[in-house]
Design a protein around this nucleic acid. Structure first.
Length: 562
DNA sequence: CTGGGGATGGGGCCC
DNA sequence: AGGGCCCCATCCCCA
């Protein structure tokens, strides 16, 4: 990049005064790259296969006409994974921001070939020319993807905000069912791996890492302005974010990312797929909802999943105390692939940071040495048998005592056992929050002893861990901040679930209508819409409801003064 | 316009 | 950590 020329006009003088600042461009670029590292003012996210990169629209637009056209309307850009893989895109992004091309991950020719493919695809002409030159020197003519029939795909990208039915990393443009093993939907997985982005990172050879998620912004929060990205465009049902982060959470360790072309191909091998786990395969049918039958209806219910770490550094699975570097994204493939959001080299966010609410914009640059030792973590996915009964056995719930029964007859018989007086007393109190909570906790039932008593309130618990968890609810401070909006939570799980709503991640899909949910339980609830099942019956008027919460709200109608 | 029901989203909290 | 179930809030539709 050449130096900038400043032109000043003094008074009425028509003669411009020129002052060259030779370092200006360099400094400017340096600043921008540092900002990228911290995610500061990043206003676009580029999804490449299983990785997310943050960047500045202006910079991308200035680099390529292709990017220019993309960033004009989109904050989230999904690149064709046939044309570019995460490792190559990292190089490209670094090149864009620094003017320097660092090649290290792959053998030179292979790398330049991949770079040329990507550069051509992204219309980075200078970079493409550079790669051609390099390849020419090695005497290997370029046989890239641009030369094969897939050329028709060049230039294709996906808007992350588009409806799920049109989103895919490498799906066919006509939306037909995918058989491609690279279809990331096939490796989508369990809830809460979502947090992939901020949760996990292995860092070593590539030492690039997660930027904080904070560029994925919640427009309801004050941090939005700071980070400048509006994710209000949530996909109605499924977004590539979903794909991206789900895939993120189970495809691609740092190693695998560095050779992510092979990485894609290896999705076939995932245990996840073999185990037929979770929302995988959903996208394949979402393209054509009319084909969806109820056959898989029961698959979602009560499924137990277990990740077992079989090798590697203990710290990777431990909590913040031991895992200082990186953010494990979760057990993925049997190759131990992990995914991540990439900021830039200097920027990855440690799990510690996340747990402590530290954003990379405040602190970045963990040393590489801090990050060694975790790359060997391998995981296998083990899935225990899942029930074929979708909604459990005791759907008929006695409102006064909360006890469940498998059918209305048994429930009615049970209701008879409550005395009039007892029902009256219960009803009077049952709609205050406190009482509702009491009913919802086993404190109200007559179960095991609960020796661990809360020092603040009257509640007691079976084990100290639960008590400790409960006692946090009395704290004024909440230890788990949302990395995106800053909202604080008392439990990590609540926070990760909250994050999911920022990211639009909805792993649980209804196979009847394609609607997607962030939680398994929501899907279970929703399925009653299709089944017509109304397990909740008002004991006062006999009205039936699909959801307990609607019954409760209905009961208020009975009890509230008119 | 209003109230009731259906359905969904998000947070709290216990297991 | 993840699942499950509770709550409140909200939107939409319909009578």
């Amino acid at each position: 990049m050449g130096s900038f020329t400043y032109m000043f006009r003094w008074g009425t003088s028509k003669k411009p005064v020129e002052m060259d600042l030779p370092n200006h461009a360099k400094q400017l670029l340096l600043q921008l790259n540092q900002q990228r590292a911290k995610g500061f003012l990043c206003d676009v996210i580029i999804v490449v296969e299983n990785a997310l990169f943050r960047a500045h629209k202006n910079i991308l637009a200035a680099s390529s006409m292709y990017f220019k056209s993309l960033v004009l309307h989109d904050n989230l850009i999904n690149l064709d994974t046939d044309m570019v893989n995460p490792a190559v895109f990292r190089q490209i992004l670094d090149f864009i921001y620094t003017g320097k091309l660092l090649t290290s991950d792959q053998p030179g020719e292979q790398n330049f070939s991949a770079l040329l493919t990507a550069a051509s695809y992204l219309q980075l002409h200078d970079l493409a020319a550079l790669c051609r030159k390099k390849l020419k020197r090695t005497g290997k003519p370029f046989i890239g993807k641009l030369g094969v029939p897939s050329i028709g795909r060049v230039g294709r990208s996906h808007r992350l905000s588009a409806p799920f039915g049109h989103m895919r990393f490498s799906g066919s443009p006509d939306g037909t069912k995918l058989s491609n093993s690279k279809d990331l939907s096939k490796v989508t997985g369990p809830e809460d791996e979502v947090f992939a982005a901020s949760k996990q990172e292995n860092c070593h050879t590539l030492n690039r890492g997660t930027s904080s998620n904070s560029s994925l912004n919640n427009s309801t929060n004050g941090s939005d302005q700071e980070l400048g990205l509006d994710l209000s465009k949530k996909s109605p049902s499924h977004s590539v974010q979903d794909d991206a982060l789900q895939a993120d959470s189970r495809a691609g360790s740092p190693q695998s990312v560095s050779a992510s072309v092979a990485n894609s191909a290896s999705y076939d091998d995932l245990d996840l797929k073999k185990n037929n786990c979770e929302p995988m395969e959903l996208e394949a049918v979402e393209e054509n909802n009319s084909d969806i039958g109820p056959k898989k209806l029961h698959r979602h219910a009560s499924r137990k999943k277990e990740w077992t770490r079989i090798e590697g550094d203990k710290s990777a699975e431990d909590g913040a105390e031991t895992m200082t570097n990186g953010v494990i994204v979760g057990p993925l493939s049997k190759e131990g692939k992990l995914g991540k959001i990439y900021g830039s080299e200097q920027n990855f966010q440690c799990k510690d940071d996340i747990e402590n609410g530290k954003d990379n914009s405040e602190e970045s640059g963990h040393s590489e040495s801090e990050c060694s030792g975790h790359q060997n973590a391998n995981y296998v996915y083990r899935q225990e048998g899942f029930e074929t009964v979708p909604f459990g056995d005791n759907l008929y719930v006695c409102i006064p005592c909360g006890k469940g029964f498998p059918n209305s007859e048994q429930l009615n018989a049970h209701v008879e056992t409550h005395t009039e007086e007892e029902l009256y007393i219960k009803e009077e109190n049952s709609y205050s929050k406190e009482e509702a909570e009491d009913l919802s906790t086993p404190n109200a039932t007559f179960s095991e002893p609960r020796p661990f008593k809360c020092s603040v309130c009257e509640k007691s618990y079976k084990d100290p861990a639960t008590l400790r968890q409960h006692e946090k609810t009395h704290w004024l401070t909440r230890p788990f901040p949302c990395n995106i909006c800053g909202k604080m939570f008392t439990q990590r799980g609540t926070m990760t679930r909250h994050m999911r709503s920022h990211l639009g991640l909805k792993p649980f899909a209804c196979e009847e209508c394609g609607m997607r949910f962030t939680r398994q339980y929501r899907l279970t609830e929703h399925m009653r819409v299709h089944s017509g099942e109304k397990p909740y019956e008002c004991q006062l008027c006999g009205g039936k409801f699909t959801q307990q919460r609607n019954l409760i709200s209905h009961l208020r109608m009975h009890t509230s003064p008119t």
